[in-house]
Every structure is written in structure tokens, then in C-alpha cells.
Computed example of a mutant assay.
Amino acid sequence: MPRPSPRERFYRRERTSVPAARAFASEALRDWGVRERSYDVVLCVSELATNALVHGVPPGRGFLLRLLPLPYGGGVRVEVHDSGGGVPAVPQVDAGEADEGGRGLLLVSELADKWGVGERDPGKVVWCEISFRPHAWPGASM
């Protein structure tokens, strides 16, 4: 069985987009037969989608969520494409702070094996990769 095909979906700048992106990611992972670290993938999708809506999507625009299986069944790459400016960074957070916002990239940086920001015109791509044991794709060969 070959490696699963990438999946992508465009979301508008609206409140329902983040839960819809989580559901889309959960469905893709289920279809691909991924169980290992699926919660981590869905949580990273949620955080990156939320950041795109709050910081990266100008009014009247949206964001593109792309899920890409890594080679040899070794994980998933999550990409969120938006047309906003700026370069996201992990905030320096004091453990005693009561504010619950602003920790999305901190969570992504802890859960993902790699993450980064790429350029696009206009805007940027914020991505992360979550690895798991090779051979996790059903029928994948090394």
C-alpha cells in the first residue's frame, strides 16, 4: 500500500474554522490509519490554525491547512499558510503568569519534533513535523 496522499483544505476567517480544521485533521489521520501521536498532531493543527486566525489572516481572507505524510510512514507535517505579515516566535512565558493566551507556539514547540516558518507571497507558512515509528502507515515498507 503506498504512502497516503497529502490533504489540504482552505478555511475562512471565522470562529468555526478552528474546530473544522481539527475535525479535518482527525479524519485524515483516521483515514491514514494513524493512531500514534494523533492527539499531538490535532493539537498542533488547532494551535497553528488559531494563531493564523488571530495574527495572520487579514479581514476577508483565510488560511490553508495542509497535512503531508512524511516518508516511510515516519510522521506527519502540518502546514498552515496565511497571507499575514510578521514572523511568529515562541513567547518567553513566566511560569507564574495567569494569562491563558499566547502559548500556542510554545505548545507546538514542545509537542512537535521540528517547527518553523517559511515565506510565501503574500504571507508565510508556519509548519511543524511530528514523527512516529517508521512503518506506522499501514502496509508501508522501509
Rank of each mutant, 00 (worst) to 15 (best):
M1Y: 04
P4N: 06
P6N: 05
R9T: 02
F10K: 07
R13P: 06
S17R: 05
S17N: 06
V18Y: 02
P19A: 13
P19L: 11
A20L: 15
A21F: 03
A21Q: 03
A23E: 15
A23I: 13
A23D: 15
S26H: 13
S26P: 01
A28K: 03
R30V: 13
V34K: 01
E36W: 03
Y39P: 05
V41W: 04
V42Y: 00
S46T: 08
S46M: 11
L48Y: 05
A49I: 10
A52Q: 01
A52R: 02
V54W: 06
P59Y: 13
G60M: 01
G60H: 03
L65E: 02
R66Q: 10
L68S: 07
P69A: 00
L70H: 00
P71R: 08
Y72T: 02
Y72R: 14
R77M: 11
V78T: 08
E79D: 13
P88K: 05
A89W: 08
A89E: 12
A89P: 03
V90I: 12
Q92V: 12
V93A: 09
D94M: 14
A95F: 13
A95Q: 12
G96Q: 12
G96W: 14
G96D: 14
D99N: 10
E100V: 15
G101W: 14
G101F: 13
G102W: 09
L105H: 14
L107Q: 00
V108E: 05
V108P: 07
L111G: 10
D113L: 08
D113N: 10
K114M: 14
K114Y: 15
W115F: 15
G123C: 04
G123K: 01
G123R: 06
K124M: 02
V125Q: 00
V126Q: 08
W127R: 07
W127C: 13
C128T: 09
E129V: 02
E129T: 10
S131F: 11
F132D: 05
R133H: 10
P134H: 10
A136C: 14
P138S: 02
P138T: 01
P138Q: 07
P138E: 07
P138A: 11
P138D: 10
G139N: 09
G139Q: 13
